[in-house]
Simulated scan of single mutants.
Amino acid sequence: MSRQIVLDTETTGFDYDKGDRIVEIGCIEMINREITDNHFHVYINPERSMPIEAFNVHGLSEEFLSDKPLFAEVGQKFLDYIDGADLIIHNAGFDVPFLNYELAQMGLPPVTDRSEVIDTLKMAREIYPGQRNTLDALCRRLGVDNSRRELHGALLDSELLAQVYLNMTGGQESFFDAFETATHNQETQSAKNAALLASNSQIKRRVCYANEEELTIHQAFLEKFKN
């Protein structure tokens, strides 16, 4: 059984070293590439103010988060949920350090001790080099409906990323299958053409020359055009 967890977080900012904290974790479970209803979702009280720049991104206010649990109250439950599963994260270089920092404050091991991490941003940059590879851009490119995404939200973004990931990886397999089929067909046709040319080269062609009567008629026909 292959178990994967598609994960996203929302935070108060970009730098945990400067006091920014996680305010939301959203996870979607996939078993053998099938999305299940076993998801993990929690809002977290960051015990600090909410910068307006972050609020404009996810819409989570200091007041809304004030009665939510602290990370210390949900950290172990989160680790138990992801235990042993591969983590699928868009721009994992942002989320993973935040999670590891919060877990370290509890004396718990980093997420990478229990799980392998697949970064879909790196994957997208390899598949679509030179193009925009934000989650919204990938949704548009791969036909994933993101019309509900007026603001960032960890659970919603995980749902969208799960569909994007399935489309990206499924599309790759289809592409290579098609490439191999086309290559095989081209090689088969080339072999047929080579055999046909070889066969034609063995044919003895008969050369027919015009007799005197036919030459006289042809010459008379050409004389009409001299005047």
Rank of each mutant, 00 (worst) to 15 (best):
L103M: 12
N100V: 07
Y101K: 14
E159G: 02
F78A: 00
F78N: 01
D145R: 01
C139V: 10
H152D: 03
T183R: 13
R114M: 01
L155V: 05
G143A: 10
L138R: 08
G171N: 14
R141K: 15
V111Y: 00
N91Q: 09
L151H: 06
G84V: 10
L156R: 03
S158N: 08
R141V: 06
T188I: 09
V96K: 08
L142D: 06
V117P: 00
I127A: 10
R125V: 05
D145L: 03
M168R: 12
F78Q: 00
G84E: 07
S115Y: 00
T112M: 02
T134K: 12
G153I: 00
T120L: 10
N193C: 02
N193D: 11
R125T: 05
L103R: 03
L160M: 06
P129V: 08
E187F: 01
I127Q: 15
A191H: 13
I118L: 12
Q172V: 03
H184D: 12
T188H: 04
L161D: 11
A104C: 01
D136C: 00
T169E: 13
Y101N: 14
I127V: 13
I127K: 11
N193Y: 03
T120R: 10
L142I: 10
Q163F: 00
S115R: 00
Q172S: 03
L135I: 15
T134F: 11
L160T: 04
S147Q: 03
Y165I: 06
K192F: 02
T120S: 13
K192E: 08
A182N: 12
P97V: 07
Q105M: 15
D157F: 02
S190N: 15
S115V: 00
E126G: 08
L166D: 04
S158G: 12
A92R: 01
L121Y: 09
Y101E: 11
A191Y: 11
S174A: 13
N100L: 07
A178T: 12
F94N: 10
E173R: 14
Q172L: 14
Q186V: 05
A182F: 04
R141E: 09
F179A: 15
M123Q: 07
G93C: 03
R141N: 07
H90K: 11
S174V: 10
E159S: 08
P109H: 10
L99K: 01
G107A: 07
Q163Y: 02
R125Y: 05
A162P: 02
A85G: 11
M123L: 15
L161C: 12
S147M: 05
T183D: 15
T169P: 01
M106H: 05
D177W: 00
F98D: 09
D83V: 00
K122N: 09
L156T: 03
R140D: 14
N100K: 05
G171D: 12
E187T: 14
L156N: 01
N193T: 05
A92M: 02
I118M: 04
T134I: 11
G93D: 13
T120E: 09
L142V: 08
I127F: 14
L160D: 05
A92G: 12
S147C: 06
R132E: 13
G130M: 09
E173F: 02
Q189A: 11
F176G: 03
T120D: 06
F176P: 00
P110A: 02
L103Q: 04
I82D: 09
V117H: 02
Q189F: 09
T183S: 13
Y128F: 15
I88S: 03
D86A: 14
N133P: 00
Q172T: 04
G153Q: 07
